[in-house]
Design a protein around this nucleic acid. Structure first.
Length: 506
RNA sequence: GCCCCCAUCGUCUAGUGGCCUAGGACACUGGCUUUUCAUGCCAGCGACAGGAGUUCGAGUCUCCUUGGGGGUGCCA
């Protein structure tokens, strides 16, 4: 495959607007994007909206948002413009018709008038007869006049490409040469009865007109390539570089599909993340997602695993893209996320956290409304986090009204009520001292606790844990000094008082 | 069914005929650190799908078998 220095590399990602960007699609974009950035070429985004029945409103905006979240910018396409637009296939119908007329005129394509029912019957017949091709090319072929008049009469008319009767060998930059014997591909539809081109046709015309030099796509397209090459030859187009990447599966070997979410929901399980947006909403860092999917099918050849987008641009080469299908290991992604959360500079981490708060659906109002400075401190207190929901779990109580504190019975029993209420007694003792503490800072609070420990000859946990349960209701919170500072003196004392009132109910 | 692609630890992978006693990462197990939850640190477990060749020598090359995946749409 062409590498840096060769110049003029143009790649494209061509999603159809049927929903959010799938995580597998994200990897396809990433590799295309890397190829473009690496070679100083251009990355083109083209919207393949030729199927009006599957079109989902808003999905273009969603896909653009997903790409932006990942940091994968496009040079040409929606909102960016470019010299070879329009970049929506639905706006290119006259262009397709022009090339369609050429194919019709040269006899490389012909009108066909079978109904869907007839085609279905042909397929079944071919199956019972164990024939490879189900579509029988009509003999003689309908003339252009017949096709056009049938269309005028309102009958369903499509245009089919006449597959040449010769073997087609495609060079794939990942897989090597792939040869498909003649007679393995039937005459396929290139224009639907609604006048829209099919994917195969639009894609071939657009890639040529948009001067694409490298097509890097999923392996599910491998068998389409000979069709595309046949059309390129008929149209006098050049054939460029093709590369087909391995597919990404679930850990159990099934396809990662939107259906997985519905299935899990039905079983009462949390839905797995499938689309890029799912990972965003679930509180993953885009850095971690990018890093992880980059390593699904590519590796640097040494033992490095931690890569930012910039580092990937420097390191990525097509030679190191593998051929084997990969399973999506969510545990490993979580580990990557943990690493990234630890290595990102704090401003960036906070920015990502705010993004999470703005898109996640189950953020408590108190956290949503929290002021920035306090939120920053709260996040800082949670370093070591694996994923953003951990933060809300750990410090969410700080942002709730004092009166909302709910005490986990288990925590109360274990930490406060046990040993004749030793924890409650400790609370009384410590709250009195805290009340007189002038400097409400992490260091002085911790010093105060240490002093108590020394005085009473007890361990930190004997003091910190009762305090933790008293102010949070549970045994989970940041370090106790940071927790109390986040809360402030008034809330701390109020919550301890409230906690002491439950002693009598024990 | 037919066509095409693929094949190293549970998972992602390194390995391009001798550097392989098969390396790393995640997970797992055990230990350490620790005021909770996390984090962090150390150690251990763990793979060349099977069979024929080629070669002085094969995880690496060839063939077969098996297994997995993709395609076989007026979806992309």
């Amino acid at each position: 495959m062409t590498e840096p220095g060769s110049g003029n590399v143009r790649v494209r990602f061509a999603p159809s607007p049927t929903g959010y960007l799938h995580i597998g699609g994200a990897r396809t974009v990433l590799f295309n994007w890397l190829l473009a950035r690496k070679s100083g070429g251009s990355f083109v985004l083209r919207i393949e909206d030729t199927d009006r029945t599957r079109h989902v409103d808003d999905s273009v905006q969603k896909i653009l948002a997903d790409l932006r979240w990942l940091g994968l910018t496009w040079d040409e396409g929606p909102e960016a413009g470019g010299d070879v637009g329009p970049y929506f296939q639905s706006e290119r119908l006259p262009i397709y018709n022009e090339y369609l007329a050429k194919l019709l005129a040269s006899g490389d394509a012909y009108y066909a008038m079978e109904t869907p029912e007839e085609l279905q019957a042909m397929r079944e017949k071919a199956r019972t007869e164990k024939r490879v091709l189900s579509y029988d090319r009509p003999n003689p072929l309908p003339t252009i006049e017949q096709g056009e008049s049938a269309r005028k009469d309102g009958r369903p008319v499509v245009v089919r490409f006449k597959m040449p009767g010769e073997d087609i060998t495609v060079h794939d930059d990942i897989l090597g040469d792939v040869t498909l014997a003649s007679g393995q591909i039937e005459d396929f539809v290139i224009q639907k009865s609604d006048g829209f081109p099919t994917y195969h046709f639009a894609c071939v015309v657009d890639d040529e007109l948009m001067k694409i030099t490298h097509v890097l796509r999923g392996q599910e397209h491998l068998m389409n390539t000979p069709k595309h090459v046949a059309m390129q030859r008929a149209l006098g187009f050049a054939t460029f570089h093709y590369a087909h990447m391995p597919v990404i599966f679930n850990m159990n070997g099934s396809k990662m599909s939107k259906r997985d979410k519905e299935k899990a929901l039905k079983k009462g399980e949390p839905p797995p993340e499938i689309d890029v947006n799912d990972f965003r909403v679930a509180g993953y860092l885009p850095e971690a997602v990018v890093n992880f999917i980059a390593l699904l099918g590519w590796n640097p050849g040494d033992e490095r695993e931690h890569f930012s987008l910039d580092e990937l641009v420097k390191t990525f080469t097509m030679e190191r893209v593998g051929k084997t299908n990969a399973k999506f290991d969510r545990e490993k992604l979580l580990a990557f996320n943990t690493n990234w959360a630890a290595s990102l500079d704090f401003d960036r981490l906070f920015e990502a956290f705010c993004d999470y708060l703005s898109v996640a659906t189950d953020i408590p109002q108190g956290v949503r409304d929290a002021d920035e400075a306090k939120l920053r401190d709260a996040l800082k207190a949670c370093l070591g986090l694996r994923i953003f929901p951990d933060v809300v779990k750990k410090v969410g109580f700080v942002f709730a009204p004092d009166s909302d504190t709910e005490y986990d019975p288990k925590a109360v029993k274990k930490v406060l009520a046990k040993n004749d209420g030793a924890g409650f007694a400790m609370l009384e003792l410590v709250s009195a001292k805290l009340e007189t503490l002038a400097d409400w800072s992490t260091s002085s609070i911790e010093q105060l606790i240490k002093d108590v420990c020394e005085e009473k000859e007890i361990k930190m946990g004997n003091v910190a844990q009762p305090l933790r349960v008293a102010v949070s209701g549970s045994t989970i919170s940041p370090a106790i000094g940071e927790t109390l500072v986040l809360l402030g003196k008034d809330s701390t004392l109020a919550r301890i008082r409230k906690c002491l009132t439950i002693r009598d109910t024990q």
